[in-house]
Simulated scan of single mutants.
Amino acid sequence: MILPPQHPLSAGRTADSRLVRAYRGERADAVPVWFMRQAGRSLPEYRELRVGTRMLDACLDPAMAAEITLQPVRRHRVDAGIFFSDIVVPLKLVGVDVEIQAGRGPVFGRAFADAAAVADLTAIDPASLDAAAAPISDAVARTVAELDGIAPAGGADAAASATPLIGFAGAPFTLAAYLAEGGPSKDHLAARTLMHADPGAWRDLMHWTAELTGRFLRAQVVAGASAAQLFDSWAGALSLEDYERHVAPASARALSFVHDLAYETGATDASGAAVTRSVPVVHFGVGTGELLGAMRGVGADAVGVDYRVPLDVAAERVGAGVPLQGNLDPALLAAPWPVLEQAVLDVLRRGRSAPGHVFNLGHGVPPQTDPAVLTRVVELVHEASA
């Protein structure tokens, strides 16, 4: 599917932004930077806005979700917005009983840890999300309209582009891990048990979560997101063999919902046909140092790396020519500035081993982070990499 002419990529507003170029494996005037969980509890304006509003209600309020997405872009002048949502939002939209409990996370009305429960869940048609996703599409459209007027800080490349929005979704395994347990877990034992005890039920669960989260990601891109990130929070609990056999096919299926989305560049080839590019996809997982090559293999254009593996080592693991994203340890945000500064510079240095690099954290922004520190890191990344 060719994205419509008004899409930010098709219209040229974000196609040559620092972020999109980095995901293509190109170097711009400076390394782009954004932070996972940049929108949220570290910002006083977020805490003020969220008073009296539950998390999932905020995610499904288009005006509020858009405003929350925009807050860190205005404050920090990062090179991308990440859509404010939660991985369980598509589950909520199709009628699964789930709420996010403060201090605990997603909690379901029941666990889906056996064949009968999985059959009940998968009786819900994932395609029903398409009609239910209107609040998501609306929120993305509102966000993109505002981002069109915000250019990232500094440099000719930034000034020439609008700030792109990244679409966000949880990977099939992470969704399945929560569903099988009925809530958060430290070891994801219920999911890993179902995987081996009843492979048929596991395949059904993974196919269903792949279809659902793939449609959720696609809705965001069609509505205006310029890139897509699949976030596998809990894949690090798996061996490489289990990941490749029981998880990778579902992640590939989820990403297939974005792979057919493309935009015309405005150029033509030797035959006169319009040249198109696909929407860039980045895949990130936590504790996945042993899985990096396999995670790239599911169809990612770029791979996010957590703080446990240096970027130059990660570049060897994913193979030549793969852009990387990451990977400052979030704990360093509370360190003295000279310590943090040297760590940022080290990440930038190691990131040169990849054809393209997007500076980020190796996980999300801690809630207690001083926002001024994040702004200072953005300035340092832009200045040091210019």
Rank of each mutant, 00 (worst) to 15 (best):
Q229V: 06
G285K: 12
L19P: 07
I100E: 05
R350P: 10
L230W: 01
A354L: 09
A162G: 11
F257M: 03
E146S: 14
D306M: 10
R21V: 03
M55H: 14
L332K: 11
L333W: 09
G109Q: 08
S128K: 06
R376K: 15
A39M: 12
S185K: 03
A225Y: 06
Q342T: 13
A315L: 05
V344A: 08
A134H: 01
A177R: 02
D29K: 12
L205M: 03
P152R: 10
I68D: 04
T375K: 15
V313M: 10
A15S: 15
F108W: 06
E211M: 03
G200N: 01
G12I: 10
A219D: 03
H357L: 15
V358K: 04
V313I: 14
A191D: 05
Q229L: 11
A30R: 15
S256R: 13
L238G: 04
E244Y: 00
R47E: 08
R77W: 08
R50C: 04
A235E: 02
S385M: 09
D260E: 13
R296K: 12
H259R: 15
S128W: 01
V20I: 15
E146Y: 02
S161V: 07
E26R: 10
L230K: 02
T14K: 08
V313N: 08
D86R: 10
I150S: 06
D232N: 09
A133M: 02
R376E: 13
G297M: 08
E316M: 07
P184F: 05
A250C: 05
